[in-house]
């Protein structure tokens, strides 16, 4: 998967890593999108947690996803507050991953007014870096 994001000016914040989400963030730091999957029923879970909301199992494994997906919905934020206000306009989206889950993210590397920006647009994962080297998942058009 692509790991170098297009230039963007979106704020990055250090994520709150905990015992439930550490495998995700360890992969993210390496530019890999790791997804949790229920060992009992196979459901691919989002957001990451040590519990399957489909079958109530707590046996959760991890696998590397393709990083490919399509835009399920999006909005161009024109007005916001603080550092995000200064970054506006920017694109927030739900991307439906090829593996099933819909993840909140930003679409970068495309002008917010570009006509290509539509529901159904194919995108691929890119990683912005925090000062401490953590990866923040965003997507860019294929």
């Amino acid at each position: 998967m692509t790991t170098t994001p297009p230039d963007n000016h979106l704020p990055v914040t250090e994520p709150p890593v905990n015992s439930e989400t550490a495998p995700y963030w360890e992969a993210a730091a390496e530019g890999r999108l790791a997804l949790p999957r229920c060992e009992q029923c196979g459901y691919v879970i989002w957001y990451p947690r040590q519990f399957c909301p489909e079958c109530s199992s707590t046996e959760i494994g991890w696998f590397d996803a393709s990083g490919r997906g399509t835009v399920y919905s999006f909005t161009v934020t024109r007005k916001s507050w603080g550092e995000w206000g200064q970054a506006a306009p920017f694109v927030i989206a739900y991307v439906e991953l090829a593996e099933g889950p819909r993840v909140l993210t930003n679409i970068v590397g495309v002008d917010p007014d570009d006509e290509r920006l539509t529901i159904g647009m194919e995108v691929t994962a890119v990683w912005d870096r925090t000062p401490e080297g953590q990866g923040i998942l965003r997507f860019t058009p294929l």
Binding site: L10, P11, V12, T13, P15, P16, V17, T21, W25, W46, Y47, P48, T75, T77, K79, S80, W81, W84, A87, F90, I92, V103, L104, T105, N106, I136, L137, R138
Partner: peptide, 13 residues
Amino acid sequence: IGFENQFGLSIPA
């Protein structure tokens, strides 16, 4: 929190 607060998601958005 770590999966929704990284993207500038305001209430209007």
